[in-house]
Design a protein around this nucleic acid. Structure first.
Length: 251
DNA sequence: ACAGGATCCTGGGGGC
DNA sequence: TGCCCCCAGGATCCTG
């Protein structure tokens, strides 16, 4: 149960509002869910919704454990020396609160967040690809098309599906669309098994690093040999993001 | 509608 | 040691 909320001096992109501290006080955590890149902590009534941005960390720690710099929110837990901490060096992340299920639904609907890749229908996916002239990389990063795919997993999925990131969505055959969808699901499941990717900042709830960074096949492997054909991995910029691919394997 | 760029932030690493 | 530049798991806004 939340006892109180301690707010840091610096503000996040969307500041934590004082009424949210009152809203969560005395509430118990019922469940922790996820929707796209949003962590949804269901309390008995309100919902605490967290986005880690680039450098966010959500951890549970003992109150005795020193708090590092850039810790913006500390949720003190009642009758316990444990606390839920939100730390974010670059402050691109956010923590917000919604009073009830309806308010939460309104938030996700208004944001236009796309379906979970695991539950996405092939027909919907093919329609999204068909109606756009954008390149595959830009489509994968668009949270309104499919939720939860970020820069690493976009590159890894395209490699898995052997598709060039600059290919246009409208050019894909139904077969290619299907293999890209399958690749996204496979890559994300693999990354989840490995508890995500820790490049420098990321740690999971228990403070442990992820291990998927050791499994990258293209991301961050510029000039290194492709693990399938030995050709050097290339880095380009697409949709404003660094993009890695094998120029021989990915067509 | 979409591409491309700037912006919000802090910090690490490389070159000089 | 310092300075400057580029880079980074993301999203949003603006212009053309």
């Amino acid at each position: 149960m939340f006892a109180s909320v301690q707010v840091g001096r610096q503000s996040l992109r969307r500041p934590w509002l004082p009424q949210w501290s009152r809203l969560v006080r005395g509430r118990k955590i019922q469940a922790v869910q996820r929707r796209g890149k949003w962590i949804v902590i269901q309390l008995d009534g309100p919902f605490l919704v967290i986005h880690l941005g680039m450098t966010g960390q959500l951890t549970v720690a003992s109150a005795q454990q020193p708090t590092s710099d850039h810790t913006h929110l500390i949720f003190h837990l009642a009758a316990s020396d444990q606390q839920l901490r939100f730390r974010d060096v670059r402050r691109f992340g956010s923590a917000t609160c919604y009073a009830d299920q309806q308010a939460l639904d309104v938030f996700f609907e208004s944001s236009g967040l796309g379906p979970e890749p695991f539950a996405m229908e092939g027909k919907y996916w093919r329609a999204c690809l068909a109606k756009t002239q954008r390149c595959l990389k830009a489509i994968l990063l668009d949270q309104r098309v499919v939720a939860g795919v970020g820069n690493i997993y976009a590159d890894e999925s395209l490699f898995e599906a052997r598709l060039h990131p600059e290919r246009l969505g409208s050019q894909l055959t139904a077969r290619e669309a299907g293999s890209l969808h399958k690749a996204i699901v496979r890559v994300l499941n693999h990354a989840i098994e490995k508890r995500g990717s820790s490049i420098r900042d990321y740690i999971g709830g228990s403070g442990l690093k992820g291990e998927f960074q050791d499994e990258f096949r293209v991301y961050g492997r510029t000039d290194e040999p492709c693990l399938r054909c030995r050709k050097a991995i290339v880095r380009i910029v697409l949709a404003g993001r660094s993009t890695h691919f094998c120029p021989r394997c990915q067509k």
